[in-house]
Design a protein around this nucleic acid. Structure first.
Lengths: 102, 102
DNA sequence: ACTTACCGTAAGCCATGACTTACGATATGA
DNA sequence: TCATATCGTAAGTCATGGCTTACGGTAAGT
């Protein structure tokens, strides 16, 4: 659940697609494999990356495994951006200060 | 400036590091290359990716090229997360509705 | 004009990543 | 118990990505 894992997970278009799909409705692996034009193991691997990043969670249902969104998973990203914004802002203020100093 | 370019740019730890560094203070290429333990061309390539993603902007200063933060560059990411949150939320509401239906 | 400083790009190398097929494991139903 | 459904993982393949060295190009100073 590091920044690295989250951003790496979000870097792949197919994973973002899967994520959005699961966000609107929890799905099984085979269900996802049907909609995307790749093999089932490929989907499984993507789901592992998304899950390890904290963006998904699983609940077994018989032989199926239903993947659903972890609604707090994207919060670190927001925090990252916010902290970033603060950095840029204070740096900008410092810049202004230095300018007025001259 | 697509989602793909932005998330790909943010996926690399070194690029996130560079981004944060430039956020606190605009810098030249050689300056960055000194602090990171890689060659100058490597930094140049990272800067190109970050710039193409809309996260940085350049202003030539003599022979130097000063890279600075584009403060609006991360806004699409926030928008992406927000839209996502909405999707998950409405889906969750639908789920509740379906549950009460049973 | 010449040298120096600073930089972007091309070409090549090597690790990483996304995909496939093959296999093994678990839960369900007859 | 046996067959079926569903899935995760291992191994191998091919494209992508980050790095290096080599080269060329522009701005400033003498």
């Amino acid at each position: 659940m590091t920044y690295d894992m989250i951003f790496t997970a979000l870097a792949d278009p197919r994973r973002r697609n899967i994520l959005q799909q699961i966000a609107t409705q929890p799905m099984s692996v085979a269900q996802l494999a049907d909609q995307h034009n790749v093999s089932r193991p490929a989907i499984s691997q993507h789901l592992k990356i998304l899950t390890d990043a904290g963006l998904l969670s699983v609940t077994p249902k018989g032989t199926k495994r239903i993947y659903q969104i972890n609604r707090d998973g994207l919060e670190p990203v927001r925090a990252y951006i916010d902290g970033f914004w603060d950095d840029a802002l204070t740096a900008f203020q410092d810049h202004i200060i230095n300018q007025t100093k001259d």
